[in-house]
């Protein structure tokens, strides 16, 4: 075993709710029962906490469980998914213990979510201004004209040109970028304490994405809102997030402050992901082993072992713990990557 690992301690910041945490997830496990066979485990004993005002980037490929995690936090798992264990604490309250109606009151008000395919997220039969106003009125106990006013203000805040006219526009009359702004306005109208963005910019053109990200960051920073930014594009996290977490097969495999993560990625999977973005075949060959079949979460041992170029015998039998290898930098690996300093 490496000396770093021997010296490492389990950090309470990860395992329990930090005092400044807006959201703390502990030991969360989610599975999808499959008829006639073993359930598919989508999230496995996941610990994560997000501080007030922090933007955390959650990077993973399709099937890694990142969307399941987002929906589990919201209490809106798609059928037949179910939470097997763990807790989700938001602002000191246990979300899992809450009845559905109480959760409805929190969703959209305290925790908001932004999703991709913005035009599909909006009701095609209702004007966008009315849709924003409806969210405001559902949560803020205000009169109709007040909520309309607020909706118009939000349209201005997300910099939609000609907001008065757009208020009465229907979703199909908007471009993709504009619709994404409307969805942002909807999610921000109640000034939530926490926003989950699930691949929200993935369908947009790069120049539009750049505008949306700038806007989102400004709005989030000015309201001291915390955010979990889920994405497939590790490039965005480099410029947009305070911390980066990498999720693989339903487990956080690496978590670090952004700059540190890109300077010194330690999990072989993180390194492999970065190499894929570098389009460097020599690097990829070094870090990547082609995989024959899909890996399911919840295997004994390290789920990355079959794809890992570093794999040792111990990896197949022991599930590594998430350990703090340098301050604030957590890695779930028995043989992490080391670099000469």
């Amino acid at each position: 075993m490496h000396p770093e690992i021997a010296a490492a301690t389990r950090d309470p910041a990860v395992l329990s709710a930090r005092s400044d945490a807006i959201l703390a997830i502990r030991g969360l496990s989610v599975s999808y029962p499959v008829y006639g066979t073993e359930a598919v485990r989508a999230i496995r004993e996941l610990d994560l906490s997000i501080a007030r005002g922090e933007i955390l980037g959650l990077v993973g490929e399709s099937g890694s469980g990142k969307t399941t995690l987002a929906r589990a936090i919201m209490g809106l798992l798609a059928r037949p998914g179910r939470i097997d264990a763990g807790s989700v604490t938001f602002d000191g309250r246990d979300l899992r213990a809450m009845p559905e109606d109480a959760l409805r009151a929190i969703r959209g008000k305290d925790i908001a979510m932004v999703i991709p395919n913005p035009r599909g997220e909006l009701d095609p039969l209702v004007t966008v201004g009315r849709q924003i106003a409806t969210v405001a009125r559902a949560h803020l106990d205000i009169a109709r004209d007040k909520s309309d006013e607020l909706a118009l203000e939000m349209l201005k805040a997300v910099q939609i040109p000609d907001p008065k006219r757009r208020f009465n526009a229907y979703p199909h009359e908007l471009s993709g970028g504009m619709a994404q702004r409307v969805v942002m306005a909807m999610s921000l109208v109640c000034s939530p304490k926490f926003i989950i963005s699930d691949d929200a910019t993935s369908g947009l053109d790069v120049t539009v994405q750049a505008q949306i990200l700038d806007l989102l960051r400004n709005l989030v920073r000015s309201h001291q809102t915390a955010m979990m930014f889920i994405t497939r594009d590790i490039g965005i996290t480099a410029h947009f997030c305070d911390r980066v977490a990498v999720i693989y097969a339903g487990e956080i495999v690496e978590l670090a402050p952004t700059v540190r993560f890109f300077e010194n990625p330690m999990h072989p999977y993180s390194v492999m992901l970065l190499a894929a973005f570098a389009h460097n075949p020599r690097l990829r060959e070094k870090w990547h082993k082609p995989l024959a079949s899909q890996i399911r979460a919840g295997t004994t041992g390290c789920p990355y072992a079959p794809r890992c170029v570093h794999v040792e015998d111990q990896c197949r039998g022991t599930r590594p713990a998430l350990l703090e290898l340098e301050p604030g930098h957590f890695v779930r690996c028995l043989v992490p990557v080391v670099r000469p300093t």
Partner: peptide, 24 residues
């Protein structure tokens, strides 16, 4: 504008906005 909108996975390679493409 297009090239400076690309976000590369390296926080130190910050894009510089010499050409800011506004609007739609």
């Amino acid at each position: 504008g297009l090239l400076s909108s690309v976000l590369l996975p390296n926080p130190r390679l910050k894009r510089e906005l010499t050409v800011d493409l506004k609007g739609e």
